[in-house]
């Protein structure tokens, strides 16, 4: 089940994913365009609020659209998705000013047990790894598991970072990790196979408020190195946009 809409529209493929979901994949050679397409389409679907469509989960080049098969069907939702693409083609994507977040991090030691391993694997010093990690402004690409983790393109390391051979059963909330060419912060305690290089004392996830996490895809994030003795000073504060 593959759709190739007319040439003017972004090239998109639609795959069956069971009786209650579809996977939409933007398949142009331009990664940024693919990312923009799936996120714009997710926003369009949310705003359209079609009967029986539960919502959409956009990531990098793909979008999972979930629906209630009692109310609608894979065929109807697929037609609706293609309609959305056509509308976006006409109307364009409404611009939204990205916000910026600054995240204090204690690197290494008990806070970042994999920092030295990552440095060794990258053939860099620990300071160079921290330097590369704090230099960049990251774009939050999507919200991932667990609990709305901000998934970002990783620091400009020379090599992709291998995942842990034995994933940890428990990684604390605030853990700052890298894997492959990606970077992330853990909003909640969960098992994890990524390399943990540091930890932020800030509270990322607030289950008592909506939205649960303060950022949305497209927002920017920077890391700032702090000393272990300053960890307590920030602890319990919420992550908030600085602009």
């Amino acid at each position: 089940m593959t759709a190739h809409p007319t040439a003017a529209q972004p090239p998109v493929e639609v795959f069956e994913s069971g009786d209650a979901a579809l996977r939409v994949v933007a398949s142009s050679p331009d990664r940024e365009a693919n990312w923009a397409t799936v996120h714009a389409l997710a926003a369009w679907l949310d705003n359209a609020g079609a009967d029986g469509v539960h919502g959409a989960v956009p990531t990098y080049d793909s979008l999972l659209v979930e629906f209630d098969p009692a109310v609608t069907s894979a065929r109807q939702v697929r037609a609706f998705v293609l309609l959305g693409l056509r509308q976006l083609e006409f109307a364009g994507v409404p611009a939204r000013a990205p916000r910026e977040f600054l995240v204090p991090v204690v690197y290494g030691g008990e806070y970042g047990p994999d920092l030295e391993r990552v440095a060794e694997q990258q053939q860099l010093s620990v300071d160079e790894v921290i330097q590369l990690h704090t230099t960049k402004a990251y774009v939050i690409r999507c919200l991932g598991a667990p609990a709305g983790s901000p998934m970002m393109d990783g620091p400009d390391f020379p090599f992709p970072v291998p995942r842990l051979k034995d994933p940890r059963l428990s990684v604390p909330a605030g853990a700052v990790s890298v894997a492959g060419r990606q970077a992330v912060i853990a909003p909640a305690m969960a098992p994890g196979g990524w390399c943990v290089i540091g930890q932020t004392p800030l509270t990322v996830l607030d289950a008592g408020s909506e939205p649960l996490v303060p950022y949305v895809p497209g927002d920017a994030l920077r890391f700032l190195q702090i000393h272990p003795e300053d960890f307590a000073q920030y602890e319990g504060r919420k992550l908030e946009a600085i602009r």
């Binding site: 069971g18 209650a20 979901a21 989960v57 956009p58 990098y60 999972l64 492959g180």
Partner: peptide
Amino acid sequence: AEVLSRGVPVGA
């Protein structure tokens, strides 16, 4: 090939 993270349906 490395797979980019993407939404997975219940029942996958």
